[in-house]
């Protein structure tokens, strides 16, 4: 029983990170039809931001703030430099564009910082554990869960209660109409990238806190999971992305916890195969976006 509870905590804390990343991908995809391969590099930039701040002996809160700030900056400038020129291109062209951007940024990290991981030293209290009844829960796992929950609530409030949030939701449904209503397309799109950046930044903080180091490929693996989560949830569906993120996290943790030792190296393959099986059953994902007629 304890073990199962423990695994559930792990699943939620890992799935939460995937959910944040997947949500960022979905926010951008729903508006500009871009599957952003370079989303992982946004996360990596945030990781390096935290690393520099902590290495310069900044307080943790300031380091987190810097991480989030550089993530937003990175996401928005990517849009400005690379994706804006391609706006309106088909999904495949946009996908390849972001693929190329991602490759370029990785090389820049390898040359500008280091190809090797750089250590990020966090305060000792963060690596402790708390005993909650029968469950022993890591401080970082707890922080992760709370942060993810808070982020999802805040984003939901933003999308439902603010004018820009409503504009973004409307843009996801039907972009030309939003332009006809007099909202600047560039503003809405930049905002979408900023939101995806801040979500990737939060994910980076939690990821770095759990792993204790940053390297040029840091964002690649979790964002790959987030891709799968968005497709699993239903491309372009925000709710679907969050659900997909938690499902991918849960599947991964379950396989890690319950697979026999000899099969452990195959767990990535097994979890992916399970997810593809779900897609065969439901090609539009678990929670598809509302069908609007787009030609």
């Amino acid at each position: 029983m304890d073990l199962i509870l423990q695994q559930m905590v792990n699943a939620v804390s890992l799935g939460g990170i995937y959910a944040l990343l997947a949500l960022g991908l979905a926010v951008v995809f729903s508006i500009v039809r871009l599957i952003n391969f370079a989303h992982g590099e946004v996360m990596t930039v945030a990781g390096y931001g935290i690393w520099i701040a902590l290495a310069s002996a900044w307080p943790v809160a300031a380091a987190v703030a810097l991480g989030l700030a550089v993530a937003i900056l990175a996401a928005v400038s990517m849009e400005r430099v690379a994706f804006r020129a391609m706006r309106g291109a088909d999904v495949t062209t946009l996908l390849i564009t972001s693929f190329a951007v991602s490759e370029i940024i990785k090389v820049l990290f390898q040359n500008g910082i280091s190809a090797r991981p750089v250590p990020v030293v966090l305060p000792a209290w963060m690596s402790g554990t708390l005993d909650l009844g029968p469950v022993r829960i890591g401080v970082i796992a707890l922080i992760s869960i709370l942060t993810v929950a808070l982020s999802l609530v805040l984003l939901s409030v933003f999308l439902r209660r603010t004018v820009m949030g409503l504009a973004m939701r409307a843009a996801a449904e039907d972009f030309p109409v939003v332009r006809l209503m007099g909202l600047r397309a560039n503003h809405v799109i930049a905002l979408a990238f900023a939101v995806s950046g801040i979500l990737a930044g939060v994910a980076a903080v939690l990821w770095v806190a759990q792993r204790g180091s940053v390297d040029p490929l840091m964002g690649a693996a979790p964002v790959l999971k987030a891709f799968i989560a968005t497709v699993l949830g239903g491309l372009g569906s925000l709710t679907g992305a969050v659900i997909g993120g938690f499902v991918v996290g849960a599947v991964e943790v379950c396989l890690q916890g319950f697979l026999p030792q000899s099969l452990l190296p195959y767990r990535e393959a097994i979890s992916l195969a399970l997810i593809i099986a779900v897609l065969v059953w439901r090609p539009d994902g678990l929670w598809p976006a509302e069908q609007t007629s787009r030609s």
Binding site: L95, L224, F227, I228, L272, L279
Partner: peptide
């Protein structure tokens, strides 16, 4: 795009 992501999953 879903097809492209699926081929990536296949490679992994």
């Amino acid at each position: 795009a879903s097809g492209a992501i699926a081929t990536l999953g296949f490679l992994i």
